Simulated assay, not measured.
Amino acid sequence: MYRKAAADLGREIGEGRYGSGGRLPAEADLTERYGVSPGTVRQAMALLRTEGLFASRRGTLRVVIGSPPPQSFGELLGFTRWARSTG
């Protein structure tokens, strides 16, 4: 479930729904939206944070950094390999 939530939110960020500098919904809102526990929402947020989509600090809301990078940080490719994959 956390992967689905992360994918949905990542897509919405990419579509500009929250805008650069915008705030993501609160944890309580996301638990209700997806019908999951707060721990599941935290896992989804951790995944999005590692992809560089938003920043947060203890006690603050999550702020969108910008659009998603062209490839996930977890899947970084060398330039040649990336160029070949995009044609």
Rank of each mutant, 00 (worst) to 15 (best):
K4L: 14
A5K: 11
A5I: 15
A6P: 02
A7Q: 15
D8Q: 05
D8F: 03
L9A: 02
L9F: 04
E12I: 00
G14L: 03
Y18H: 08
G19A: 13
G21L: 00
G21N: 03
G22D: 03
R23C: 11
P25E: 11
A26G: 09
A26M: 12
E27Y: 05
A28S: 15
D29K: 08
L30C: 12
L30W: 14
E32Q: 13
R33S: 03
R33F: 08
V36S: 06
S37N: 08
P38I: 01
G39Q: 13
G39H: 10
V41H: 03
M45A: 12
A46G: 10
L47P: 00
L47K: 09
L48E: 10
R49G: 06
L53A: 04
F54H: 14
R58P: 06
R58V: 11
R58A: 13
T60S: 13
R62Y: 15
R62K: 13
V63W: 02
V63A: 05
V64D: 07
S67D: 11
S67L: 13
P69T: 05
Q71W: 08
S72H: 08
G74I: 05
E75P: 01
L76M: 11
L77P: 00
L77I: 01
F79N: 10
T80Y: 08
T80R: 12
W82F: 15
W82H: 12
A83V: 14
A83S: 13
R84I: 05
S85M: 06
T86F: 07
T86Y: 07
T86L: 15
T86H: 14
G87W: 09
